[in-house]
């Protein structure tokens, strides 16, 4: 009974964790390259959710197609925000960038609310389920999981195999050195920022495949906080670290519930949240480079 439930939850945790990981890669990429924490992260996820909803409900287009569309939308948003604000703030103190990214999030939320209203929406994409006995997995969740892994692999290849990718990598390692070597550092910043936003918006699509309801302009807040924990698990500045951080986080969140449920007089669900923030603090203290780093 106990192991059945734990097992079921862990399977769900892996599937969800992959999506969480993908949803954090953009955050880590932007921090890794620009040293900017995107506090408006969740709002960009929300944009992705609305892209999916709009394409599916109004035009009947499958959420799978929505992934590249959302990615392009995100790249565009990223470029706009980079050239209007972020570019001028790269050397500014944290205070400025934190507040700027937060304001971007609020701006997006209010714009989406103006266009779509504050209704809680959802869509119903029926593609079947698999019953594993100890738990049930809808195919949509599996597609989301597979999509996340695919995108992570593509990003990895992009970094390794393309010229633009290696330019970004060299900027991460040493921006001054890169400048000396003739790499267009400003361009690398712009590219990374819009790529990061693109990934985040695309992850919004995958997240709605996982949870296709409750879509509304203010849905992002919870995801921002989760993304922080996951990013820290993965070392904050590494997109792949974030991906594996997501897996670990999914496992912890789902697995620990079953354990906490045995403590009398508590609310186990809230405690799983508590645990995730404890982990955040512990990692920041003992190994701020993340649990997966070689050091």
């Amino acid at each position: 009974m106990f192991f059945e439930q734990l097992g079921g939850n862990l399977i769900q945790g892996v599937v969800l964790g992959a999506v969480y990981g993908m949803a954090t890669m953009g955050l880590s990429l932007i921090f890794g390259v620009l040293k900017v924490v995107n506090v408006g992260h969740g709002a960009f996820i929300m944009v992705g959710a609305f892209v999916t909803l709009f394409l599916f409900s109004s035009l009947g287009i499958s959420p799978i197609i929505a992934v590249p569309v959302a990615f392009m939308v995100g790249m565009g948003l990223g470029l706009i925000f980079y050239y209007t604000t972020i570019r001028k703030l790269i050397k500014a103190p944290e205070l400025a960038t934190l507040l700027a990214t937060f304001s971007m999030g609020v701006l997006l939320e209010e714009l989406v609310k103006l266009v779509f209203g504050s209704e809680f929406r959802g869509y119903n994409w029926e593609v079947g389920k698999i019953d594993l006995g100890i738990t049930v997995l809808p195919m949509a969740k599996l597609y989301a999981c597979a999509g996340s892994i695919l995108i992570a692999v593509l990003l990895f290849l992009w970094f390794k195999k393309t010229r633009a990718g290696s330019a970004v990598r060299s900027v991460v390692e040493d921006s001054e050195g890169a400048r000396v070597c003739g790499i267009n550092v400003g361009g690398a910043y712009a590219l990374s920022f819009s790529l990061g936003i693109g990934l985040t918006v695309a992850s919004g699509v995958l997240l709605t495949m996982f949870i296709p309801v409750g879509i509304n302009p203010y849905m992002g807040g919870g995801y921002t906080l989760k993304a922080f924990v996951i990013a820290v698990l993965g070392g904050l500045s590494s997109p792949y670290g974030a991906f594996f951080g997501g897996l670990v986080f999914g496992l912890i969140e789902n697995g620990s519930y079953t354990l906490f449920a045995y403590i009398p007089g508590v609310e186990p669900f809230a405690l799983t949240r508590f645990l995730s923030f404890v982990i955040l603090l512990v990692i920041l203290l003992i190994r701020p480079t993340g649990i997966l780093s070689a050091k």
Binding site: Q12, F210, I211, G222, N254, Y257, T258, F269
Partner: peptide, 9 residues
């Protein structure tokens, strides 16, 4: 954002 563990129980 995810009720799976609670609902499984």
């Amino acid at each position: 954002t995810d009720l799976t563990p609670l609902l499984s129980a």
